[in-house]
Design a protein around this nucleic acid. Structure first.
Lengths: 239, 239
DNA sequence: ACAAATATGCCATTTTATGTCACATATTAG
DNA sequence: CTAATATGTGACATAAAATGGCATATTTGT
């Protein structure tokens, strides 16, 4: 086999692309008999693909127009980004294009392994949504650097001490050691809430002003939420 | 067959859930010989699944940890919502969790049929992103009604005349006939830009104030963009 | 009425999948 | 170093599944 598997994949792709195919055409294209194509279609239907067939002259076979736009294969970090993006968008309550994303979210969550689900829950419990900011994202610094994103996916929050280069509002760049505890979105600006290693006090850093970040293996101190009350006040947790 | 297909699906799901399985366990669970599982794994590898194997004592088989967190099967309207949501989020430039969504977008677009791709392009060409609004979404009216969303997916823009019940700021509810041409997001509020059938002039309606909408089969007049210049000014198209 | 399309059943034949056994190779515990 | 567990691979007989061909029913447009 494996021949049949391949054919089934091809058939599905083909039916998605083209609107209406006759069994005869399909048989010729795949070099098998019409009977075989009929059986393949049966199998695909059995597996849940909504294949419509128009009988009679001028008829043919097609996939239900509103069905599965293919399958998305997501890597872990893609899935996390997608899930968090949807949840943030939901929280930000601009609902027109969110109506049908509930099922997407459910599918995403269901497909995580328990271990990953836990990791994501912890990440979410460290994300805060605040009021919309009056400031704009700095032009020229519109994206936080790659490294920040990578650190987020690697369990950035509550685990790793980071060495960063930070650009103050007046333009001066300084080096700092921080222990990040929370991410805060005051749309459109993301902040990192962290213990400043030098001053040993909670501080808030704009993600778009972090020029570089690097993990350091200095130990991380777990701190209770209360330690951050002063900077967290007035913001809501994502979960 | 179909037995093997099912087994392959189960195997993939299982390897995603559990970190490490021995071939012996898998064989026992599926009631086949170890040799068969080995062959199944070969086939899965051939199909592109990144299956790692640790040989030797304590070894086993697992899926690459960062690989496909399941497959998403999306219906058309889910895929559209997802795509538009991502693009809107990108345009709104709050980038922390958008870093890895480029590939998701590409997969989505690639999986649309040409016809659907065209439909989506047209929808996108009718979406405008404006400046962030100072107002909030009306509480109690936070979601536009189901019907508005449905109409969007059915080719709402530029095709259908709608009868709506609209709630003015002072609370008064009136009936109107509109021909919708554009959707405008002034975050967090969505607007419909339409020809008001009674006054025959362009007008802007807040989506969260549309209480009900219904298609009417009265003819729709295609109008050039210039007709809406007065209300479109200062807003940018999504595409 | 006729032609073109799907849908379904049956059976002989061909192809594929499976189990079994043997052996190679890699890793870890002791 | 050795024994114990793992995966990986090849060969071969056999069970199972896929295939093709044919007959037939059914739907639909001309």
């Amino acid at each position: 086999m494996s021949k049949r598997l391949r054919r089934l994949e091809l058939l599905a792709a083909q039916l998605k692309q083209e609107c209406l195919c006759t069994v005869k055409e399909l048989a010729a294209q795949h070099g098998v008999s019409e009977r075989t194509i009929a059986r393949d279609l049966d199998l695909m239907r059995e597996q849940g693909l909504p294949i419509d067939a128009d009988r009679g002259r001028g008829g043919g076979v097609r996939l239900d127009r509103n069905w599965g736009v293919g399958r998305l294969n997501l890597a872990y970090h893609e899935a996390v980004d997608l899930l968090i993006s949807i949840e943030v968008a939901e929280r930000m309550n601009s609902p027109l294009f969110l109506a049908n994303l509930g099922t997407v979210k459910r599918q995403l969550i269901a497909s995580f392994s328990p271990e990953k689900r836990h990791r994501i829950e912890r990440l979410k419990s460290r994300i805060l949504i605040g009021v919309t900011a009056s400031t704009q994202v700095q032009s020229g610094f519109s994206s936080p650097p790659e490294t920040v994103v990578r650190h987020v996916h690697q369990g950035f929050i509550d685990q790793q001490r980071l060495a960063i280069r930070y650009r103050r509002e007046d333009g001066a760049v300084s080096k700092r050691e921080i222990e990040p505890h929370y991410l805060l979105l005051k749309y459109p600006v993301w902040y990192v809430i962290a213990m400043d290693g030098l001053r040993d006090a909670p501080r808030t850093f704009r993600c778009d002003r972090i020029l570089e970040s690097e993990m350091t293996d200095t130990s991380f101190r777990l701190l209770p939420k209360e330690a951050f009350d002063s900077v967290l006040a007035g913001n809501e947790l994502l979960v």
